[in-house]
Design a protein around this nucleic acid. Structure first.
Lengths: 291, 291
DNA sequence: TCGGGTGATCGCAGATCGCTATCATCTGAT
DNA sequence: ATCAGATGATAGCGATCTGCGATCACCCGA
């Protein structure tokens, strides 16, 4: 009877199993073999005194108590990793650490004043910016991987644990390579579109679909890409045009411009989001820069 | 060159070294040998990329960057341990966990209504009560070992990171075994006293000293004990009497009574304290039960 | 100068972790 | 009904790591 106390590794594996939905899938994600996962999870369950997962021949499902533990483990893991990361990056004499996740749609000059004000007010604090998708922002907020996110607000991203505050609004425009100064809905109707894949751009795609429906047409998507850079590249090579917030004009490649669409009602709201659970002191100071 | 990623064990050892003030002392505290500590700390420093401790022949002192890391490590460690502990104790379907530390002086019927209201409002939350000294409360609050503390408020326990809120006041009385209904200062002047050792009762001893000085005498302490139970036991065997808050009357052994002192101005304020950093959702709900 | 304190280094034994191979079981398509 | 393919569990083995003991190098104070 070796007491094998629980370890970060156990948490990592348990969370991986929960995320992957199975032992084998988790093993593949972690680049180790399945029996190692089996043993670790079993040891953890032995140490905790209860079953974390209900095993079946078609994967695993967390038990009731397991679900709570997994949520907690996510938090611990995120905090652990951020401390290591922050310490590695921290220079001499810095203190404090805020991790920001922002969707590509939120890239904008509206964000800069707040960031600069924060860095001026807290020069010893470290600000870490990550460009990630809206869905990933929500996940990371819940898990504690990021402290605050900037992204499009949308009913589908509602979550009682996550607080949101609208910070600015912007109209949707069209990104093209030859620069008209504006576009009519009729001109837009038959335009071939390049858009982000639904898997990674779900709320934005839904929003665009709704806006087009209201304008009386169905978007003709001829190409999809995972990343915003790839979308812009495709637009630049003439595959089509794409919808994009007017506020993100500055972040476009030099060869592209974003132009307004006449009589097209599509106003996007960009919100700041944070987890109600991890709302600590420095983070509150950060938020105050945007309100 | 094995990449030996940082682990909870590394954090544990680093914090232990910081607390013990040396590698050998930390080893003794952890019941392992010193070379194991040496290696772990070295591995951690290698992984982090900077020196955590400045070694000298007379012990170690944390470097500037080391201090920051140690503080963070304390938090991670505390959160880690609490998750494991909470999960082990959690019954089916509980969620949420609040750890309360309270000084012996704060034991009182004034605390109960708030606790009961909280448990009624959040029946699924787990409430963990720990009886610890005022100094330990402050340390644990900073390190994240407890969420909220009840203790005597006193200027010497001031700390910018720790928020405090007075929750009740009480006069100091005298605990004796034969029960007079009250005591005069003159009768008190020559009484032999049993008190808590300064090391563990510093703020309270300072407070009592000041009160006696104001009343015009110096307390004659004939016996000191570490624990409140031992103090009461000594009082019960007739070694002397002791000062104690009137509000804690209910927690006295049956053979002892606490009586007021005439014309003795010694009002103690009991405060609720919490860390501004770890002020999360459920904790705020807990606090609201007391204000 | 030397004893007692500090941390660092080296070699060894036991424990741990991950890998390979295999098993028991369930699911679902044929 | 059956069989291929999926699931997780188990056993044995080798590489690695952790902790132990003995020892070293150093510094401070008597």
């Amino acid at each position: 009877m070796t007491s094998t106390c629980i370890d970060i590794r156990h948490l990592r594996y348990v969370v991986a199993v929960a995320d992957a939905g199975g032992f084998r899938a988790a093993a593949k994600a972690l680049n180790i073999v399945q029996p190692a996962i089996s043993k670790s999870v079993k040891d953890a369950e032995l140490d905790l005194g209860f079953q974390i997962f209900e095993r079946s021949a078609s994967g695993v499902t967390p038990t009731l108590r397991g679900r709570g533990f997994i949520d907690d483990a996510r938090q611990v893991l995120a905090q652990f990793q951020r401390v290591i990361r922050a310490s590695r990056q921290n220079g001499e004499g810095t203190s404090g650490h805020v991790i920001v996740g922002y969707s590509a749609l939120a890239t904008s000059k509206q964000m800069s004043p707040g960031l600069e004000a924060f860095q001026k007010a807290f020069p010893r604090a470290q600000l870490e910016m990550h460009n990630i998708s809206t869905d990933t922002i929500m996940q990371s907020l819940r898990a504690g991987g990021i402290d605050v996110g900037f992204m499009m607000s949308h009913p589908s991203v509602g979550d009682p644990e996550i607080a949101q505050l609208p910070v600015w609004k912007t109209q949707i425009g069209i990104v093209t390579r030859h620069g008209p100064t504006s576009l009519t809905v009729d001109a837009l109707r038959e335009q071939p579109l390049v858009m982000g894949v639904r898997e990674n751009w779900r709320p934005y795609r839904d929003f665009v679909d709704a806006a087009c429906l209201k304008a009386g047409f169905e978007p003709r998507v001829v190409d999809e890409a995972w990343d915003v850079q790839v979308i812009f590249q495709r637009v630049a090579t003439g595959r089509g045009v794409t919808f994009y917030p007017m506020s993100a004009a500055e972040s476009l490649p030099a060869t592209l411009t974003v132009v307004p669409i006449e009589n097209f009602d599509a106003e996007l709201t960009i919100s700041m989001a944070w987890s109600a659970r991890t709302d600590t002191g420095l983070l509150r100071d950060f938020r105050s820069m945007f309100s």
